[in-house]
């Protein structure tokens, strides 16, 4: 990164994910921030490192029947069913607002086959304002009997390579925690050319309503998110940091700057704020403010001093 002279009262919060340079390490997590605009009354969007939008598929998806969400201890389960407007409407209806704001947009994409992923990436490749693509590999591969791409290193690598070939922007692969060894997946996508990895996606869980003797979600199982999953997410970020050299984006239960900086110590170059946006719509900007204060108070040269700076032994 180019050295710049940082003014005394300003702090250097810049981080990089491959060629993607961010003014600070704070992004929003896919599916928890809509298409950005929903938060305009609460967040000064250009102050964020990047906005990661709801997962986009090749064609619109209407999602699962309700109930789609249920609260659990310090967290929530969701089975939204990847409802989204589809890549064409995303480009025509949602991108103009975001690109006019000048905030880097990371587009989270999902598909049911390798070809679908690359076709979405091709459509997004030249769209103004798209700063990077985040590949959600927690989806089932219909052509391979519905096994999640993210549960098989070969399939994850194939998707990564295909998306890399379809666009010039940095490609971040979002890892699923629902695997035996997350480092295998991280290594596989690094070898396939990923510019970074983000983790974790939601942990598969379930809730039951004793009164009705029914599952709380119509889909029976769903993804667990929120503060409840933070320790698992931190552990996985730490393990992946030992296994790969590409930058890591830490996700999982972050509600404050303190949480975010713990992920950075564990090895993350950047973070995403997810479920916390639902409780405090200003959470992402609060995390930016909190990190800036910490860097200033601790007299750090830059926020980058925190990355992987965990003290052991």
């Amino acid at each position: 990164m180019e050295p710049v002279i940082v003014k005394k009262d300003e702090v250097d919060l810049r981080v990089a994910i491959g060629t993607l340079e961010l003014k600070n390490p704070v992004m929003t997590a896919s599916g928890t921030f809509g298409y950005g605009r929903e938060f305009e009354s609460f967040v000064d969007l250009p102050r964020l490192g990047a906005v990661v939008v709801k997962g986009i598929s090749l064609t619109p998806r209407s999602g699962n029947p309700p109930p789609r969400i249920v609260e659990t201890a310090c967290g929530m389960l969701n089975a939204i069913g990847l409802e989204n407007v589809g890549v064409d409407r995303f480009i025509s209806e949602k991108m103009p607002y975001l690109s006019a704001l000048g905030v880097p947009v990371v587009v989270n994409i999902l598909g049911e086959s390798v070809e679908e992923y690359s076709r979405i990436a091709e459509r997004l490749a030249d769209v103004a304002g798209v700063a990077a693509i985040e590949v959600n590999i927690s989806c089932p591969n219909v052509k391979k009997g519905g096994v999640a791409f993210g549960a098989d290193p070969k399939m994850a690598a194939a998707v990564t390579a295909a998306v890399k070939q379809s666009c010039q922007v940095p490609v971040i692969v979002k890892l699923s925690p629902n695997v035996t060894d997350v480092t295998l997946m991280a290594r596989a996508v690094q070898s396939a050319g990923a510019d970074g990895v983000s983790l974790i996606n939601t942990l598969i869980g379930m809730a039951i309503d004793l009164r009705s003797r029914r599952p709380s979600l119509a889909n029976v199982i769903g993804g667990l998110s929120g503060p409840a999953i933070k320790p698992v997410a931190l552990r996985m970020v730490y393990q992946v940091a030992q296994a790969v050299t590409i930058p890591i984006i830490g996700i999982g239960g972050i509600t404050s700057a303190e949480d975010a900086m713990e992920f950075m110590l564990a090895g993350a170059s950047a973070v995403q704020v997810g479920t916390a946006n639902f409780v405090n719509p200003r959470a992402s900007e609060d995390v930016v403010d909190g990190i800036a204060n910490y860097v200033r108070e601790q007299n750090l040269d830059s926020v980058r001093d925190l990355i992987g700076a965990l003290l052991l032994g």
Binding site: T32, E38, R68, E83, N277, P281
Partner: peptide, 12 residues
């Protein structure tokens, strides 16, 4: 509802 503002898509 989780968010109440169109972000989570939980309130179908």
């Amino acid at each position: 509802m989780a968010c109440g503002m169109g972000a989570c898509l939980g309130c179908a």
